[in-house]
Each structure stands twice: as C-alpha cells, then as structure tokens.
Design a protein around this nucleic acid. Structure first.
Length: 122
DNA sequence: GCCATGGCTAGTA
DNA sequence: GCCATGGCTAGTA
C-alpha cells in the first residue's frame, strides 16, 4: 500500500475505534469494511499495535467475539482486555464476547454524523 | 484446530 | 517468516 494511503488507513482506523460506544465491540473485519478495505482485517490488527493512548482499544475483538490481544502490548493481553470490557458491562460466553448482545452495528454514515467520540482508559 | 490470506512494519502513522 | 484475522471440511447417529 502506498505510504500516504497507509497513513490515512491508520487514521481512519483510529477514528472508527474512537467512535465505539462503551459496552459495545467492533471486529477487525468490521473496521476494515468501514474504512473501505474489507480484506485488510489483518492490517487493522497491525494498526492496533500503534493505537494512540486514550482510544478504547479493548472494544476491538476478533470475529465471533474472540479476544486476540497478547502481552506485552497491551501489558495484560486478553486478560486485561476482558477486565476492561467487563467493567463496561460486557458479558462473555465462555472465552468470547457475547456478540449477540454487544456487537456494535454502526448506522450508515456514523463517522460523518457522529456527535461525539468515546474515550477509553488511560 | 486448521489453513488461506495481505502486506512487509516492530514504533506508534 | 510473522501476525491483535476470518471462516469453517468431512464424515457422521
């Protein structure tokens, strides 16, 4: 991917992450689709390595509600992610987020129309 | 649990 | 080769 395009891809990813409400989650694939590159789910994962402080990184999960984070980034890996999500009232089924209850389904054009963003920890 | 997949980077876009 | 992804065979009571 071209450099300028890559930069905007990252920025768009962070913008989407900042717009996930508390208690809701988005998958890597959903985010890739929302920024117009449905096949770049893995690159969303890479972008999350460089997730700026203050974004609710814990609200990004794998397909089916799987938690895929590994220490040391974030420090506590999936365990810390689960704790942060549970603090917002997110329920789990086994090791997975209960997606039927918590998957965020953005309205069309939600990025353009959103009134606010939703900060994470830190 | 396995494998096809995209991009190529290890700092913070 | 590496990875914070996603989708899900085939044989079967």
């Amino acid at each position: 991917m071209e450099n300028s395009k890559k930069a905007s891809f990252f920025k768009q990813v962070y913008r989407v992450v900042g717009a996930i409400p508390p208690g809701r989650v988005l998958t890597y694939g959903q985010i890739a689709t929302l920024v117009g590159a449905p096949y770049l789910a893995r690159q969303v994962g890479w972008a999350m390595h460089g997730c700026p402080l203050g974004l609710p990184w814990q609200r990004v999960v794998g397909a089916g509600g799987r938690l895929l984070t590994r220490s040391p980034n974030p420090p506590g890996g999936s365990l810390q992610q689960r704790q942060l999500l549970e603090q917002e009232g997110v329920l789990f089924v086994g090791e997975r987020v209960d997606m039927s209850r918590h998957q965020f389904v953005p309205s069309k054009g939600f990025l353009k129309n959103r009134k606010r963003s939703f900060p994470g920890p830190q």
